[in-house]
Structures are given as C-alpha cells and as structure tokens.
Design a protein around this nucleic acid. Structure first.
Lengths: 191, 191, 191, 191
DNA sequence: TATGAATGAGTCTTCATTCAT
DNA sequence: CATGAATGAAGACTCATTCAT
C-alpha cells in the first residue's frame, strides 16, 4: 500500500538511467525528469549525487541478498548450498539486468573500491552467508585451501562474466546451461 | 637515449591518470599537465579524447599479447599451454597494474562494449591464440563442452578478479599462489 | 511594469554585442555578462549560439515587418506604396541602428545565405508585400521589365547603403533627405 | 618571370579560403597548408593575421581599380564615363567572384569600417576617379544634387547587390542584362 | 514540502603565434 | 630564410547544486 512515493520514483529512475548510461551519462536533471519530480526534489531525499548512488547501491544489494537467502538452508550439505547460491545469483542477474548493470557500474568506479575493501575486510554483515559457507567448506576440507578472496574469485568471477555476456546478448543462458556453469564453478573451488 | 618524446609522455600520463581516476576523472588538462606538455599539444597527436582513449587501449593490449605469446609453444600439450597463458596473464597484470586498471576501465565503458562484441564475434586476430587453444581443447575433449564465451568466463573470470584484488591489496599473490589459482581455473574448465 | 525577464535581457545583450562586434566578437560569456545572467542561463532559453542568433534574427525581422506594414494600404497607387515602404524601411533602420547592424551581420554570414535563398525562391510569407508590390508594378508596366531580384537590388540596395553610412556617421539623414533618396530609388526602377 | 614566390602563394590561398569560409573559418594553419608553406612562414611576410587580411584587401582593391581605369577616358561625356565604370565594376565582380566575396567579407567586419571612413572622408587617392566623376556630374547639373555618399549608394548599391545575387546563383547576368542594370542605376542618379 | 530557474566552475577543443632547429 | 611542433588563452557548452517562491 505504500504509494510509490517520490523517493521510490527517484531511485527507480536513477537505477534505469545509470544502468543504461553510466554515472556520467545520467545527469540529475535527467533522473528528476524520468522520476517525474523537480530537480531540486532529489536533494530533499539525497544529500547529493554521491549519496544517491551509494544509497541506491545499498538497496540493490539488499534485494539481491534477500533473493539469495530465499530457500537457503544452513543445514544442507555444502555443495548443495553452494549450488543454491550460485544458481540464485546468476538467475537474479539475468532477471534483473538493470541491477546487474548497476552493480557493475558501481564496482567499477571510485565508489566501488571502498565498498569492496569493507566487504573483503569483513565489516559488512550481509555477505556473511558467503563467508560462513566458504569458511565452512575450507574447514571441512571440501574446498581447496586457498585464501577466501581467491575462492570468491573462482566461484563468482565466472558467474559475473557470463551474466554480463548474457545481458549483452553475446550468449543466451537457460536453466540447463546455468546449472552446468555453476557446476563448473564448483569444480574450480572443490578439492 | 630514446628521447621520451611528447607522444610517449602523453600516453604515459593518460595511462596513469585514467587508471587511477577513470575516464571522467582525468581531464585533458590534467593529462597534459602530468605529461609536462601544453593542453593543445595532445591534439597534435590524438584527434580528441576518444581517440586517445582508444589508441591507448590498443597499445596496452598489444603489449599484453606480446608478453602472453613469449614462450608460448603451439606444440605443447593443451593443459600446459593453458597454464602458460593463465600464468602469464596474471603475472602481467600484477607487474603492470596500471595496464590492468586501464583495461578494466575501458571494458567497463561504452568504448569497451564494441570491442568485446568484435572479439566475441571473432573479428580480431590477436586473441586467436585463446580461441584456437579453446577450440582445440573442446575438440580434443579435454575441456567441458560449453559455449566458448562460457569457457572464457570460467578460465579468465577468476584471474581478472584476483588480479584486481591483488592490485587493491586485498590479497597478495606470489608465484606459488598464482600457480595454484591457474590450476584451479583449469579444474573449472577441464572435463 | 513588464518585468524584463532574463530572456529579454539576453536577447537585448546579444543584439547589442553582435551588432557592435559581430558573431565572433561576441562570446556567450560576454553576452551573459551584459545581460546580467550566468553563462549557463542562456542555454535555458536557447539551445546553442546558433539558435540564439537565428531566433534573434527572426525577432528583429518580425518587428521590422510590423513597422513596414503600419499604414501600408494595398489600394493606394503603386508609386505611393513604394515610397511608403522605402521611407519606412530607411526610417526604421535609422531609428533602430542595432537592428540594422544585426541584420547586416546576419545576412553576411553562413546563416544569412540560406535565408536569402528561401526568400528569393519565395518560401517566406512575410516579405510577400514586396513581391506582390513589385509583381504588381511589373504587370502594370510602371516598373522596368527586369528580373525581380534586380528590381529589389535597384530599390533597396541604395537604401541599405545609405542606412549604413548614416549609422556610421558618414552622412546625416533627415526626413527631407530620406524622401529625396527614396524618390531617387523610384527613378531607378520606374519605367 | 616573377616565380610565384611564397608570398604570392600565401595571398592566393588566403583569398580563396577567406572568400569561401570567412575570416574565422580560415585558420592560419589552413592558409599555410593551401599555400604549401609552413605555418610560421606566413609570419615572415605578414606581421599577423590582421595585417595579412588588410594587405590582401589592398591588393584586391588595387587590381579592381586597375581594371576599372582600363579604357576610362576623362574626356568622354559624363554619362558614358559612368556607364563604363559601372559596367566594368559589375563585370569584374562576376569574373572574379573570389575578389567580390573577399571585399564583402572585409567591408562587413571591424576591419572594413576604418577603411570606409578613410575613403568617404577622402584620404585615399585611388577612388578619386569616382569622386571626380561625381563632383563633375553635380557641378554640370547632370546628376541629382545629393550628398556624395548618397550618390555613391544610388549608383553602386544596386551593383553590389546584383553581383552577390549572381555569385550566389540567385540570378544569372549576361552582358545585355548588365547594360540594362547599369542604365537603371544611371536613372537613379541623373537629374 | 516541492519546484525548477539560475548559477558558474569545469570540460573539451581550437587556433594565432612563437621559436628552436 | 623556412619550418612546424608546441603553446595556452579563449570559447562553447554541461551539469551538480542552490534558493526564492
């Protein structure tokens, strides 16, 4: 019942435009226009463009994590948990290309570095699922004994790459292919 | 004694600044400044900023390919060839972080998409080594039977990710770790 | 009490500066300055400098035609109508030297050629008075049987020249002299 | 036998380019290029662009006057002398459109005003033919008793206008039409 | 609270002119 | 004498941000 208030419209417009044109290709005036609000209005909800960008990132990430955790069962065996996460991740990106593009833009920008640092160094709680899972995997000796960031890279690097290729129409992913890809990632990290 | 002529200085400055601040964070005036030349001088060597960016990309890519092909022997067994390329790639990026950052910036920009498309669709000749190698691998049934872009993703996605993590000091790679990482990538693509 | 809104100020400033210094001698920043607005403000009203120039031309031309048609009576004899138009034209330019200079600048520029062509070829409706009058004059055999553009030249060429000379203070026109000049033009075109 | 030395080439190139593109559309580098000389070379012959432009004007004017005076006989009757000058003027412009365009560009620019002033106020000797002729005409009471500049305007204003129209292909002048036009100008100034 | 007109610092690019070779 | 690479001031235009209404 939350009437799609102005803030939501702004966030939606920013997501669409930045995903399509990048940070520098999406001026505040254009975002305001697309959101159907005045240019000044954005500044009632976000201190400045940087804050809008960062905040939008948080929201996108939050939605992503929510979906990843849907049906995620800590008690299931390690491999199954990994496949769940990998598959869910790839599917989410394919179904939400704007979110994927936005995250990509974000990570590949000055904004992204600070976030990555925090995440790797363990400040954020949200991606703990991944950390827990992987630390679990290491200690159970199911996974290769490599530094956590390396395992992340082996597991998710390929997924992000194929997601991008799919969104850019270089390849076309279906459920079967997704499963095989995640399986291949598993081969990369398992002992 | 090779006098570092202006063009070289411009290219060097552009590489440094764009790698660090991105395309939009590196104004022509700043590049000129860092290169120790007048603002107008850049335009004697490059028609405009876009041309500078694209040209610089070509040069970086060329150097990279040259290094990759050093000691690359077509007659060696498939696995060995893959390990050679993967290792060389990762090493190159670690030793030339500016090049890595620049390529990343480039690929993650309007400029990059056209290039990616050409490469995927097979126009460029230089990355044929990769294509040949992988098509070889598929036909010899050493590699998983997956679309070429997917195999590329499995093989190089993790390498790019760890390269970035290393450059951002999130991890520290040495020769031993590099070898293990490339090995893990091999696990991802091999049958 | 009509608040001189920004657009008006910009138009006025542009007219003054371009009339005095020409298109290339009147930078946008200078126009903005003279108009008492910020540099960017001009672009809220005119897409770019070309549009400003063209639009300003239209406004000047419109005012001129309005004055020319004041008291112009189609039913009066040909000679009288010609004298009315010639006199009004010359008076208008003398009273609005900026307009005269601006029109001159405009016609003597890439912008102007297209306009002239359209006018000669008969696209524009506003100068139909002239065309109608002259075609009338030809068919009534009051005027020399010469091509229309030639008659225009004979009739208005001298008027524009003396207008310029007056504005540059090379001569000083009063009503008596104006009448004699227009009369002389009449001698040039009449049979 | 004067080998077409660099200076001549520069003057020729400047004439062509400025006639076609205007002062601001013809950069020094472009002129140098067209002249087949180095950019710096122009400055050996002309102190700066303004001097080049002014000097070029002088040369064009000089050639024009030379042609006008060819066959001009002071002893002939007034009307004949006028027709000679008018016809020669119009013919010259039609045969040398670049010269015409250049003179037009020049007069319609800051450069031109000073020159006009000098000429009207009688400093220059070259156009004395015109002055003498017209003063003659006035004192003989063949011409209307109007200020000299006005007579100039009546006599030559139309000629310049039709010359431009011809060069822009709005009309097409032949010898017969030229004669009739000059005759019409005569009607404008004669008593 | 919402607006959107106004701002001006910052961007890319051009071009007349200089000067070392 | 001739060159043309180098310069940097100047110009058109953009856009994040502010503030009067």
């Amino acid at each position: 019942m939350t009437k799609p208030d102005k803030r939501d419209e702004i966030v939606r417009a920013a997501l669409e435009l930045i995903a399509e044109y990048g940070f520098h290709g999406a001026p505040m005036a254009m975002i305001a226009d697309r959101a159907g609000v005045g240019a000044g209005t954005i500044y009632r909800y976000f201190e400045n463009k940087d804050v809008l960008i960062t905040e939008l990132y948080r929201e996108v990430e939050e939605k992503l994590y929510a979906v990843l955790l849907e049906g995620y069962a800590t008690e299931k065996p390690f491999r199954e948990r990994f496949l769940h996460l990998g598959t869910a991740l790839l599917r989410y990106f394919i179904q939400n290309p704007l979110h994927f593009r936005y995250l990509e833009q974000f990570h590949n920008s000055p904004y992204g570095v600070a976030f990555r640092r925090d995440k790797i160094l363990g400040k954020k709680g949200e991606c703990d699922v991944f950390r827990e899972l992987f630390e679990d995997g290491i200690s159970q000796q199911v996974m290769k004994d490599l530094p956590l960031p390396v395992l992340f890279a082996l597991a998710f690097g390929p997924l992000l790459t194929v997601a991008r290729d799919h969104i850019l129409s270089f390849i076309s992913l279906d459920d079967a292919l997704i499963a095989r890809i995640v399986d291949a990632c598993w081969d990369g990290i398992r002992r």
